[in-house]
């Protein structure tokens, strides 16, 4: 009996402690979720403010107290923004530039990185360092020589200055890809070579399929950088209808004032493609970044 009581007591204690653990876990989860929800809302505030501003009249934008949800939403702001400048055309232009740059990156980066990661050739390390050193040169410094060069080539006013560099490899992506390929066991190359594959066959059949996380990083980063690029399009493009959306948005900032309500509406629409691509690519992107070792 005593033994039974003791066993019962132990069972009750076990149940209690299990219940306590569950409660603690539940509270822990609730706290974590509350924190995550709070942070998510905090990070969404600017986008919410942007959406709110896009529906306000100019006098309401900086009014105090601020009106988070406009009492009379000005839906016409969107039509006005898109009617004032050819923003749809600009978004299409941005999409063309993004696709052309992504293709360029996907063609050039794996080939160059494969060379650095798998082959021995004279001055390999010097060339790799030289390539890395180009990352240290601020972009602004290169603008005048690039402008001069493209002017000589007669390419100013075309998309070529914005596309061509991608086909010669971006040093940042080459560095990432080289490091990634170095983590792939060489035995796979050897096995493929024994089976009769040449270097190109190994690259396209073995290396590239295994590099999907790194290639996702190339695609997403290229998308975001090219979509947001402002400086190079303003230097190299000349035609009103050829500007990307980043330049189109700048038209809302005049010499004396900013048309905030139109600017916010146009910006909100312009970031939608980035949000959509991030939504679909985030799993690969986070996996890719983690596997390459980039944080933040």
């Amino acid at each position: 009996m005593r033994t039974d009581d003791r066993a019962l007591s132990i069972q009750q204690q076990l149940r209690r402690s299990a219940a306590q653990r569950r409660r603690r876990r539940l509270v822990g989860h609730a706290l974590v979720y509350a924190l995550m929800i709070f942070l998510a809302l905090l990070f969404m505030l600017p986008i919410f403010w942007m959406a709110s501003t896009s529906l306000k009249a100019p006098r309401e934008i900086f009014a105090w107290p601020p009106e988070w949800i406009p009492s009379s939403p000005q839906w016409g702001n969107y039509a006005e923004a898109f009617g004032k400048y050819p923003l749809a055309r600009y978004m299409l232009n941005s999409a063309i530039l993004v696709v052309a740059n992504i293709v360029g990156g996907l063609v050039s980066v794996p080939i160059i990185a494969y060379g650095f990661a798998r082959f021995e050739f004279p001055f390999k390390h010097v060339l790799f360092l030289l390539m890395l050193s180009t990352m240290m040169v601020p972009g602004h410094i290169k603008l005048i020589p690039m402008f001069w060069l493209y002017q000589k080539l007669g390419l100013i006013g075309t998309y070529w200055p914005l596309i061509l560099p991608a086909y010669f490899g971006n040093p940042f992506f080459i560095f990432l890809m080289t490091q990634f390929i170095r983590t792939i066991p060489r035995e796979l190359d050897d096995a493929a070579r024994i089976d009769g594959a040449g270097s190109w066959g190994i690259l396209f059949r073995i290396i590239i399929p295994l590099c999907r996380p790194a290639l996702t990083v190339v695609v997403v980063f290229t998308f975001v950088w090219v979509w947001n690029d402002f400086l190079e399009p303003i230097i190299f493009l000349r035609d009103w209808d050829s500007y990307p959306i980043s330049v189109g948005l700048a038209f809302f900032q005049g010499r004396y004032s900013v048309e905030w309500h139109l600017f916010m509406g146009a910006t909100l629409v312009s970031i939608l493609p980035i949000l959509v691509i991030y939504f679909f690519a985030q799993r690969h992107l986070i996996g890719g970044l983690a596997s390459i070792g980039i944080k933040g």
Binding site: L143, I144, P145, F147, W148, Q151, I156, F230, L231, I234, I235, R238, D239, W240, V247, A250, F251, Q253, G254, R255
Partner: peptide, 23 residues
């Protein structure tokens, strides 16, 4: 042959072209 620029882009464009000495 007109190029219409945004205000915020104009200074960079002019500085680049004048710095390059052509274009």
């Amino acid at each position: 042959d007109v190029t219409i620029m945004a205000e915020s882009a104009y200074g960079d464009l002019m500085n680049t072209a004048l710095g390059a000495g052509e274009g």
